[in-house]
Design a protein around this nucleic acid. Structure first.
Length: 821
DNA sequence: GTCGTGAGCCTTTTT
DNA sequence: GGCTCACGAC
């Protein structure tokens, strides 16, 4: 892309740290933003890129000096403001691209910002080295100053999987029963501490005591020591090490104060304490120095509380940066009035919010209301959504304009299955990750070890893959040898093969491994990294291993390995590639393909689609039971914000679904409609009539076979619209707790039926309610189940029955859902 | 040391 | 229902 920006000197690095940019050269007829901007400035009128901004947006763009907090509601042009602001800073010559620090929360956001800035300013974005996620910027800082925190600059970055394996080793070494004290749990605890910015010495006594009989703190210390020996960081360290470094080295911090003239932070509501500390170190300057920091966020879209995000950060901004200007963006450009009305009404049920109200000028009587649909089970839900998508397709709507946003990833599968059957293109965003595949992780371990010989985790992963006859015994020997001498295992291997500690067979195998790695390391500088990677996979026998594998997935794995090599091309070095993989776990999707997007609500933040499908609005799933159990009221509010995010992704059409039956952990469970449905305003919402075909009530053909809707007792309770009844069943207690709390009006959708509500399931998944009682069934009983029909009880475990159904085969179900016949 | 089987586990969201 | 891990057999 060429643009008039080529006229302005940009540098990958500062010409000299902290230098003031020279006045931009006069444009010489370029057509880019900058040229136009300067031409415009000369002409004493606003540059083009500012036109089309509303007054608030424009203020947010032009208030470049001093601290600014932009509260930007969904669809109010937040990204546009951020990118235009950057363009403005550059165009007016206030800073070089390399003097801007622009931080986002996710890779996707970073990528998008890069793209959009690219569109605005052309190639100049290449010169913005400090645009990225907190973590990627952390890596960049650490690579430069690793020695200040006791690392070498070639340190490895461990992902969650590595961390768990490492902790497992530590627990084993300490003889802690990792059944009772799972490594995964401890990994979670450490992550939590790090999100709060806590060193081992600072963690609360209670936390320290809560793991492995009070060994929490000790283990945390041991873990950090191991990381240091491995010359490795976990995700949390990517934030904490820079903080430590800045605190311990004020001179270095001062350097970066000089360097970063303007700081921008996106999705500020999602920052956790560690990120907040990081940011404050960089942004808070001595009195009298300019603090040009701009944070953009929306408290209503804070959905990462479970990861330690502190909405308070956003509320505290004005205190942290006195004199800050606060700008609210409330004019929505994305959605119809119905969609905004529904979302706004829903989110108003939250107490903890700064309070923004989105509005739009758009009032088209033809706009659809938000439509709520009921389905019998998740299979039917997928089928019905599929049908609607096909209908839209027939009306020439593009699949790219449609998205299915789910609460939890297990919901995706059913839609995928359905789309495969229908032949509808789809793409899963953030789904199973390329880099988490076994063969990719193995290949990466080879590359990591070549690049960083102290990476014992990588060593252990591949030392016997492919099989070389180096089993547990040899590895343990080697491990002990290495620990005793405090050297990496690869080095230990090199030593031990000089001795006769190992059996000849193992010794020879290990000798080959060591020789291979020596050779590859010697090629690191001279051989292009793609070539080297290929060579490594071939010479190690790893490729051959899969070629020899006759299983069904082997060809796919080989294909993935090729893809891995191909993807390395885009990076200039092995190091750069490895960093990318650790931080950006996903892989670019094919944008050409017209396909429906399937993703979680979390990964949908920041995106928009003409039509949005929101399946699975059921108690227990959405709001998620765990969020309620662990988060209480604030957990519920976060779930509600998630719902708000979901609805506000839609530009024109928003379809919400819930089902009466869902299979969870392989058990069929009856579910209640989400309380969030109750919180939608009648005026903007329409309840879809349940069509005959959906329930299999009329048509019978096709999939009707396993429906048992003709059974009288259940026909009444669950017949269309199924949730009418379920609504009525919601207990008073539930309503008092959630519905009418704090005097909010509770709207129910549609029908006047609000009569006597029987105490039944009370919003909980029913699994719990019958747990303690002895089963009223016995083996051999003839029973009837709503979904599967008649059958005989084959086994009983608590409230779970194994039943041989006449037509559906053997299933496990909860006893609450079968009746004796 | 390697391979196959069975039991027991877990399943929110992400850098 | 699917996956991992541990154990036992070869």
């Amino acid at each position: 892309m060429t643009s008039g920006y080529d006229n302005i000197p940009f540098f990958d690095e500062d010409p000299q740290l902290g230098a003031k940019p020279a006045a931009p050269a006069k444009p010489s007829g370029g057509i880019g933003i900058a040229a136009r901007a300067m031409a415009a400035r000369d002409a004493q009128r606003a540059p083009d890129y500012l036109s089309g901004l509303n007054p608030e947006q424009r203020e947010a763009v032009e208030t470049v000096d001093g601290p600014v907090l932009v509260l930007a509601g969904a669809g109010t042009g937040k990204t546009r403001v951020l990118t235009t602001r950057i363009a403005h800073i550059l165009a007016t010559g206030r800073a070089f691209p390399s003097q801007l620090l622009a931080v986002t929360f996710t890779n996707k956001a970073a990528r998008e910002m890069k793209e959009r800035i690219g569109l605005l300013v052309g190639g100049a974005v290449e010169g913005m080295p400090w645009l990225g996620t907190f973590h990627s910027i952390g890596v960049k800082l650490l690579r430069r100053h690793a020695e200040l925190v006791g690392l070498r600059s070639d340190f490895s970055i461990l992902d969650t999987d590595d961390v768990v394996r490492l902790i497992k080793q530590i627990l084993q070494a300490e003889s802690i029963d990792d059944k009772r004290w799972p490594a995964k749990q401890f990994a979670g605890m450490i992550d939590g501490w790090k999100n709060k910015g806590l060193d081992p010495a600072q963690i609360p006594e209670g936390d320290a005591r809560a793991f492995a009989n009070g060994k929490g703190r000790e283990l945390y210390v041991a873990y950090q020591n191991r990381l240091k020996t491995l010359n490795a960081c976990d995700f949390g360290d990517l934030l904490l090490h820079p903080i430590r470094m800045f605190r311990a080295n004020p001179d270095v911090l001062a350097e970066y104060h000089q360097k970063f003239r303007y700081i921008l932070v996106d999705e500020y509501q999602d920052t956790n304490t560690a990120q907040y500390m990081w940011l404050r170190l960089l942004a808070q300057r001595p009195k009298g120095t300019p603090q040009n920091v701009c944070c953009v966020g929306d408290d209503d879209q804070s959905i990462y509380g479970w990861r330690g995000a502190e909405v308070d950060n956003i509320l505290r901004f004005e205190k942290d940066f006195p004199g800050a200007k606060v700008i609210k963006l409330e004019r929505n450009y994305r959605s119809t009035a119905h969609i905004l009305g529904a979302a706004g009404h829903l989110i108003a049920h939250n107490e903890d919010r700064l309070g923004k109200t989105l509005f739009t000028d758009r009032h088209d009587p033809d706009d659809d209301k938000v439509i709520v649909h009921a389905a019998w089970d998740s299979e039917e839900e997928a089928r019905a959504v599929g049908e609607e998508i096909e209908q839209l397709q027939r009306k020439e709507h593009k699949l790219n304009d449609m998205a299915i946003l789910v609460r939890a990833s297990f919901q995706m599968r059913e839609f995928e299955d359905r789309f495969v059957t229908l032949g509808v293109n789809y793409r899963v965003i953030g789904g199973p990750r390329f880099y988490e595949r076994l063969e990719i992780r193995d290949a990466m371990a080879y590359l990591r070890l070549v690049s960083q010989p102290a990476d014992d985790l990588a060593f252990e992963r591949i030392v016997n893959t492919p099989k070389r006859g180096l089993g547990d015994t040899t590895i343990r020997n080697l491990h002990d040898y290495a620990r005793a001498r405090d050297i990496p295992m690869l080095a230990a291997a090199a030593d031990i093969i000089e001795t006769d500690e190992l059996k000849p067979k193992a010794r020879k195998a290990l000798f080959d491994v060591v020789t291979d790695f020596r050779r590859w390391q010697s090629l690191l500088e001279t051989t292009p990294h793609t070539e080297l990677a290929e060579q490594i996979l071939d010479e190690s026998g790893y490729t051959a291993m899969w070629q020899a594998d006759k299983s069904a997935e082997a060809p796919g794995r080989l294909e993935n390995l090729k893809e891995l090599i191909r993807s390395m091309d885009a990076f200039e070095s092995l190091r750069g590639f490895l960093d990318h993989v650790s931080l950006v776990m996903d892989v670019e999707q094919n944008a050409e393909l017209d396909a429906v997007s399937i993703m979680t609500l979390h990964s949908a933040k920041g995106l928009e689609f003409e039509t949005v499908f929101l399946p699975g609005w059921e108690e227990g799933l959405f709001p998620h039971q765990r969020a309620l159990d662990e988060g209480g009221r604030s957990g519920l509010e976060e779930e509600r914000r998630l719902a708000y995010v979901g609805i506000t992704r839609a530009k024109r059409r928003c379809h919400i679904w819930f089902v009466s039956n869902r299979r969870i952990h392989g058990l069929w469970q009856s579910t209640l409609p989400s309380r969030f449905l109750d919180e939608l305003p009648e005026g903007h919402v329409e309840v879809a009539e349940v069509e005959q075909s959906y329930g299999g009530y009329g048509r019978g053909g096709g999939y009707g076979q396993s429906r048992f809707d003709k059974q009288e007792p259940f026909q009444n309770a669950y017949s269309t619209p199924g949730w009418r009844r379920a609504q009525a069943n919601r207990t008073d207690a539930t309503r008092d707790n959630w519905g009418s709390r704090s005097g909010h009006a509770v709207e129910r959708i549609g029908y006047g039926e609000s009569g006597p509500r029987s105490k039944t399931i009370d919003g909980e998944l029913v699994a719990k309610s019958t747990m303690s009682e002895p089963s009223k069934f016995s083996v051999g009983d003839r029973v009837f189940h709503m979904k599967f029909g008649n059958g005989n009880v084959a086994a009983i475990e608590g409230n779970k029955l194994t039943i041989d159904f006449d037509r559906a085969g053997q299933k496990r179900v909860l006893d609450g859902f079968v009746n004796k016949v």
